[in-house]
């Protein structure tokens, strides 16, 4: 007997979605973690990864360009929010942004070269597409009314990656 909503859970994870705490499937995955780890490994060779805030799948081959686009997106966004004197952690955690605010931050960024070199970030239209299609589909961002976007806990996956670059090798996260 499969856990409840098995098909939806499998479909969502295999669509590359991050399943976050506010999703009812989060708890099902947590309760049946062993089953799903084995299920994805034996059925497809995929690794189910879990943090206290989200679950996601990893495949042997990675979607490198999309991952790079999103990583650069968050790096530039957080950096520019900080430069504006805003607390980027608060914005990502508790607030939302209008699409025009985001495109303005990218238009005026000090990381101009890095943004211009990226086809997904170098124009308001492509930026809008990255957020609206790729990030919303993967449940990294959530579309709100009036062209506003909030971010789910999945943003931590990308900013923690940048954080890892600072930490000395082998330094463990404090409990």
């Amino acid at each position: 007997m499969y856990p409840k909503n098995h098909k939806k859970i499998v479909t969502e994870l295999m669509d590359g979605k991050f399943i976050t705490q506010d999703d009812p499937h989060f708890q099902i995955l947590k309760d049946h973690k062993e089953f799903y780890v084995r299920f994805f490994d034996r059925s497809f060779g995929y690794a189910l990864q879990s943090t206290p805030e989200y679950h996601y799948l990893l495949s042997p081959d990675t979607q490198e360009s999309t991952s790079r686009d999103i990583s650069i997106f968050f790096s530039v966004l957080c950096y520019e929010l900080d430069q504006e004197g805003r607390n980027f952690m608060d914005v990502l955690n508790f607030s939302d942004l209008h699409i025009d605010e985001i495109t303005d931050l990218f238009r005026n960024t000090t990381w101009r070269d890095q943004v211009q070199a990226n086809k997904q970030l170098n124009s308001p239209e492509s930026l809008r597409r990255l957020i609206h299609s790729t990030m919303v589909r993967r449940n990294i961002a959530v579309k709100l009314p009036d062209d506003r976007y909030a971010f789910t806990a999945a943003y931590k996956y990308f900013i923690d990656y940048a954080w890892e670059l600072v930490r000395p090798d082998g330094e463990e996260e404090e409990e």
């Binding site: 980027f88 990656y161 600072v166």
Partner: peptide, 10 residues
């Protein structure tokens, strides 16, 4: 630390 990470990355 996060901001330094972004800085290093970019």
């Amino acid at each position: 630390e996060y901001l330094q990470g972004f800085h290093i990355y970019l």
